[in-house]
Amino acid sequence: MDTEKKPLRADARRNYDRLLDEARRAFAARGVEASLEEIARNAGVGIGTLYRHFPTREALVETVLRERFDEQAAAARELLKSPEPLKALEAWLAGLGKQSATYRGLPELMADVLDDETSPLYASCHAMQDGVSHLVERAKAAGELRADVTAHELLVLLHALSWAGEYLSGDKGLDRLLDLVFAGLRVS
């Protein structure tokens, strides 16, 4: 059985691209719970077209964020070369925290799907968990990170911090929360 997707016709490709552009705008303005009907309408297509390309909200969110997920995975691989394992882990988590805080509602959605194997976001979340696992283990092996910390806990905590950062005043809300958490993760 052929598992490769057929290339989209030109008109279907335009619809797909317009839907993604409108989704990015809607998510930026109203968060990941933005109206799918409005996204389809603003893209100039019917809701059926949106669902043909993206059968669920999570599938649309995953596609919108796929490039960012790939960048985070690449960053984890690059940071494994750092001579300072804990600083590398902190840098990766800070980058993911900023990504998670991009769209209102995204941290909650990401935390929800960490254990939901049926979600289109599950594979992306676990690819990131695999990436951060190597950074976590490296920092533990260097004696810089508490031995009882897991990558899964850090991801859940990070999503919670990204959500909470929305409620602190100023642009440094998330950075301040991350600093507090990192201080508690270090081996004294």
Rank of each mutant, 00 (worst) to 15 (best):
L36M: 15
Y16F: 14
T150K: 13
E84K: 11
S124H: 06
L145W: 01
P7F: 00
L178P: 02
Q99S: 13
R138V: 00
D148M: 02
L65M: 15
S35Y: 04
T150P: 09
E33P: 00
A142M: 11
K140M: 09
L36A: 02
S133L: 08
G131V: 03
D116R: 07
V187M: 08
A183L: 07
R77H: 13
V64L: 04
E37S: 13
I39C: 11
I39Y: 07
G48M: 06
T3R: 15
L86R: 14
L158N: 13
R68G: 05
L79A: 05
R146P: 06
L158H: 04
Y103N: 10
L65T: 15
R18H: 03
P85Q: 06
F54R: 11
H126Y: 03
D112Y: 07
R25S: 11
P83F: 10
R57A: 05
G97S: 08
A160S: 14
E84S: 12
G184S: 01
R13H: 05
T63N: 09
A147F: 00
P55G: 09
V136M: 07
A101P: 01
F182S: 01
P107W: 00
Q99C: 10
A160W: 01
R146K: 12
A26R: 09
V132E: 04
S133Y: 05
P7R: 12
E37P: 00
E166F: 00
A29Q: 15
W92M: 06
L36I: 04
P85Y: 01
D179Y: 00
L96T: 14
R24L: 02
D17T: 13
A12K: 15
A94F: 02
V181S: 11
E4L: 15
L178S: 03
V32S: 02
R30H: 08
H152L: 14
A23C: 05
